[in-house]
């Protein structure tokens, strides 16, 4: 379980307009690129330093590749990060205000308290 790395993916993609577009249109390719170049980068450091141990599980990789926000919630990804990025990906397809946001919640309707732990 690498909740931190899930969050790191959501965080770094969400803050970069070009990555948001790549994740929308080519999620599998973007994810492979990200794992190869960003996953182990130390965000607040120069490029000469990197971590050596961060990796997704197969389940986490599949959830990200499939834009599966329900699975990400179940895996304990931070719900604010997931929501913010997924609104950026899909709100543009709305035909009425808040359509995507409401559908996003409805897909989680089977979940009850306590929600999955999000502590990292």
């Amino acid at each position: 379980m690498s909740r931190y790395l899930l969050n790191k993916f959501l965080f770094t993609v969400d803050r970069d307009p070009a990555l948001v577009e790549r994740y929308r249109s080519e999620p599998i390719e973007l994810l492979a690129w990200w794992e190869g170049t960003v996953a182990n980068s130390l965000l607040n450091s120069h490029t000469g330093e990197a971590s050596t141990w961060l990796a997704f599980t197969a389940e986490e990789r599949a959830a990200l590749a499939a834009h599966d926000h329900v699975k990400l919630f179940e895996l304990g990804a931070h719900p604010f990060l997931t929501l913010t990025l997924f609104i950026a990906l899909f709100e543009r397809d709305n035909t009425e205000p808040l359509e995507y946001q409401k559908a996003y919640g409805a897909k989680l309707a089977h979940l009850s308290l306590p929600y999955p732990d999000i502590a990292t």
Binding site: F73, P79, F80, T82, L98, K102, Y104, G105, A109, L111
Partner: peptide, 10 residues
């Protein structure tokens, strides 16, 4: 407040 969960945007 609920964000990113089933009770959001009610």
């Amino acid at each position: 407040l609920e964000l990113g969960g089933p009770r959001q945007f009610g």
